[in-house]
């Protein structure tokens, strides 16, 4: 079905039903991809965007995971930080773009900050929820069977929270690309979003369409990797069993 749609799109474009300045033919997009790949521009822009996405994700996700674990395990830590975090959560992170540009200019820090802020909350909230929903009977069993606090965390609490942490991870990956697209199209001097915005100025519709497709593919790729990790680490879960 998707192949048929692409074929229909190709035919319609060749017959002139779709004007090339609205949507170029798929073959035109492929040609643009080849042209940019040959000049090295494509690989460089994808590399820059991916690096931004991943570093922002590592920073925001890492802090979110750490705070989620801390607040799930310690009521003191939760009392100190949770209310504040919940208040900040209500601010849409993309609304901060003007402020972020004032703070950081349009350099790397701005994008990193926005991506990190965007992925922080889904990871934080789902980690916290995961730890809260660990079966207290299993925790009691671990204590009765003489597990040390470290073993209890590693063998009972963390694996119990993992399904929920993965939900947060997949959600965060979606937000990661979304934030990056917005940040790069508004202010950037490299990356896929920048490539798209520049192409727009020169009316290179094929490059714009290509950029959109690359974003879609990268998003799909990230989701597939997350699914694979999930399947590997949740093999015990009845929902992921194949034998």
């Amino acid at each position: 079905m998707p192949a048929a749609l692409v074929a229909l799109w190709e035919v319609a474009a060749r017959l002139g039903e779709i004007p090339p300045n609205v949507l170029p033919a798929p073959s035109g997009v492929v040609a643009a991809a080849l042209r940019l790949a040959r000049s090295g521009e494509l690989a460089q822009n994808i590399g820059v965007s991916t690096l931004r996405a991943l570093s922002g994700f590592a920073v925001g996700g890492g802090i979110g995971l750490a705070l989620g674990l801390a607040n799930g395990l310690s009521s003191l830590s939760e009392k100190l930080t949770d209310t504040t975090l919940q208040m900040i959560r209500n601010v849409p992170h993309l609304a901060l773009i003007p402020l972020v540009i004032l703070w950081f200019g349009i350099d790397e820090e701005a994008k990193l900050f926005l991506v990190a802020l965007g992925v922080f909350f889904p990871i934080y909230i789902n980690t916290l929820h995961g730890i809260r929903s660990v079966d207290p009977q299993l925790v009691e069993m671990g204590r009765v069977y003489g597990m040390s606090e470290a073993r209890l965390f590693g063998e009972v609490i963390l694996p119990g929270a993992l399904p929920s942490i993965f939900v947060g991870l997949r959600y965060a990956l979606g937000i990661m690309w979304l934030t990056l697209i917005v940040a790069e199209t508004i202010s950037a001097s490299s990356g896929i979003g920048y490539m798209a915005m520049q192409a727009r100025e020169f009316l290179l519709v094929d490059v714009v369409v290509l950029s959109i497709l690359i974003y879609a593919l990268l998003g799909k790729l990230a989701d597939s990797v997350a699914r694979l990790l999930e399947r590997l680490s949740l093999r015990w879960h009845p929902a992921y069993q194949f034998r």
Binding site: L138, G146, W236
Partner: peptide
């Protein structure tokens, strides 16, 4: 403390450990 064991009303097995690893939970570290 070490030589006392309790069996609960529910099995309380760790779903993410295979059967043999669940049994090994009862062993002294």
């Amino acid at each position: 403390r070490r030589s006392t064991r309790l069996m609960f009303q529910e099995p309380r097995l760790l779903p993410w450990k295979r059967v043999v690893a669940n049994v090994a939970v009862g062993l002294d570290p």
